[in-house]
Design a protein around this nucleic acid. Structure first.
Length: 496
RNA sequence: GUCCCUAUCGUCUAGAGGCCUAGGACACAACCCUUUCACGGUUGCGACACGGGUUCGAAUCCCGUUAGGGACGCCA
């Protein structure tokens, strides 16, 4: 499985130079998303996954999911499940995987043995106390804390200590990371130390596993957060030690909370699934996240297909960006206005069920049509649609004070009479009748519509009154108007 | 502390030396449309962090300063 390609000094540079044409031509693009299951899948992870997925799709390449669970202390099956569920909800489904690093231990140990045999790695018997002391000393001397390689030349084991294995990093020279978003980044090998690749408990570590996996999985483009920039030279050195080609890197800027601070639990929804529950459409969330750090001219709203078509790594930004909840909601609304009606009806049904509403055989499609441009999320749509399923228990005081008065009582009666007599219950018919009623009284339509609205929905806000009444059904409307009439009679003292 | 990264309206961004009097979007304000709320439309407010170069010409290239961020773990 080991790819034993020879590599000369300028191999990575050559690879970089052809990279712009790589897409769809000579070799097929392979990207991966490699989360560690130590917590929920959050917005930042999703954005990384999205860009990897988009790039693979754009290039007709392969998108791979790899679960990096070598931290056995903190990795949990629940987190794995949450990642998988989140990815599935978003539609970012992998072409290969999920692969689990904990299932590849034989492979890692094989490479470590080879490193050891070839003198590319060595056993280190330093204790934690010793290492802590070393670090403290270095920091006191205002140096970068790093392992000084004191076990490099040790000949014999230390009794009673289970050693770790360290990779022998080159002492001199420099490593150049060819990064598609940042350009070349140069590191001096002097800055790098001999990192641990195998823990004393036998578990291999992150940087090493990444290098082995990226090689074995023939990853061509490593797309990840730029908090990994500093890991890259180490990984390149290990890749080189294995004789592997160096992939092309693209380090994405971080996503910050709305206040510009590092993203944290304080910033609301931690897991993407919370966005689902809040009534976001996956394509809307992806659209918003895509526009964070990437742009295609002035276009704001993208379908998934459009993003795939237009996505280029060269259009990715270098600087961190803050989440803007208002714009995220607006983006969702734009997609709500475009999504197929029956799909929204199904989603709305779930939201309503969560509010204890029995939808019965009501045609939610009509409600969706009436509400889709009046809500930023499906949750909001559900909240605003509750009145379709139960008559108002109270009238919003301000709206009632203005619209449910002795003066409007007789308009309600007249409207009720007209509505009962209607030949059919189509919105157009209802509209015409209310229009005529207003005209016959010499008032604007609002003078009829608004009292009716408050009577029927309990507040001054709803979709157009004709649509609202049509959806509610004649019997229900008549019943609610009568209740409002009674409310006026009971609540307003008779005049002397 | 050392190394690395970043810097255009409040926020997301366009901008590849003259097209820039810096464009678009969210938010905000006003107006229009209108049966309420929305949607939509028009207008307004609002930015090239600072200082040096290079150049006939710099938001754009170079250097420095400042300010943010990241890394420095037997975490990933």
């Amino acid at each position: 499985m080991l790819c034993n390609q020879s590599k000369n000094g300028c191999g990575s540079l050559l690879l970089f130079n052809i990279s712009h044409d790589l897409c769809g031509t000579m070799m097929s693009v392979r990207t991966r998303f490699a989360p560690s299951p130590t917590g929920m899948l959050h917005i930042g992870g999703v954005r990384t996954a999205l860009f990897s997925w988009l790039y693979a799709r754009h290039c007709s390449g392969t998108f791979i999911l790899r679960i990096e669970d070598t931290d056995r202390e903190r990795s949990t099956p629940e987190a794995v499940r949450a990642i998988l569920e989140g990815m599935q909800w978003l539609g970012l489904t992998p072409d290969e995987g999920p692969f689990y690093q904990t299932e590849r231990y034989d492979r890692y140990h094989e490479v470590i043995e080879r490193f050891l045999a070839q003198g590319l790695a060595y056993r280190c018997y330093c204790s934690k106390d010793e290492l802590d002391a070393m670090r403290a000393e270095q920091q006191a001397a205002k140096q970068k804390p790093r392992y000084d390689g004191r076990c490099r030349h040790r000949q014999s084991p230390v009794a009673g200590i289970e050693p770790v294995v360290r990779f022998k990093n080159p002492a001199q020279g420099e490593v150049v990371v060819q990064d598609l978003v940042h350009g070349p980044i140069v590191f001096q090998n002097m800055e790098l130390d001999d990192l641990i690749i195998l823990r004393s408990d036998g578990n291999p570590t992150y940087n090493f596993c990444v290098a082995v996996d990226d090689m074995d999985m023939r990853i061509t483009h490593v797309i990840r957060g730029d908090d990994h920039i500093n890991n890259t030279p180490r990984q390149q050195n290990m890749l080189a030690a294995m004789g592997a080609d160096i992939p092309i890197y693209a380090h994405l800027p971080m996503i910050l909370g709305p206040d510009g601070a590092k993203l944290s639990k304080r910033h609301g929804a931690v897991s993407v699934l919370e966005y689902r529950d809040a009534g976001f459409l996956p394509e809307a969330l992806l659209n918003y996240l895509g526009r964070l750090g990437w742009s295609h001219g002035d276009q704001e709203i993208f379908s998934l297909d459009e993003m795939v078509e237009f996505f280029e790594l060269k259009d990715v930004n270098k600087s961190a960006s803050a989440l803007n909840p208002d714009k995220m909601a607006w983006t969702n609304q734009q997609h709500l206005m475009q999504a197929p009606q029956d799909r929204l009806a199904a989603e709305l049904s779930i939201q309503l069920a969560g509010r204890g509403v029995d939808v019965g055989n009501c045609d939610l499609g009509l409600i969706v049509a009436a509400q889709r441009e009046r809500a930023k999320t499906l949750a909001e749509m559900a909240d605003n649609s509750l009145f379709f399923f139960s008559a108002p228990s109270v009238y919003e005081p301000k709206a009632a004070a203005k619209n449910l008065t002795p003066e409007t009582a007789d308009i309600l009666v007249a409207a009720r009479t007209e509505l009962i007599a209607l030949a059919d219950w189509m919105p157009e018919t209802i509209h015409r009748a209310l229009q005529q009623l207003a005209e016959s009284r010499g008032v604007a339509l609002g003078k009829v519509a608004q009292p009716l609205r408050v009577a029927v929905v309990g507040s001054g806000v709803s979709p157009p009154i004709d649509q609202t009444l049509a959806i509610l059904g004649r019997a229900e409307v008549v019943k609610r108007i009568r209740s409002a009439e009674a409310f006026i009679q009971a609540g307003m003292p008779a005049r002397p």
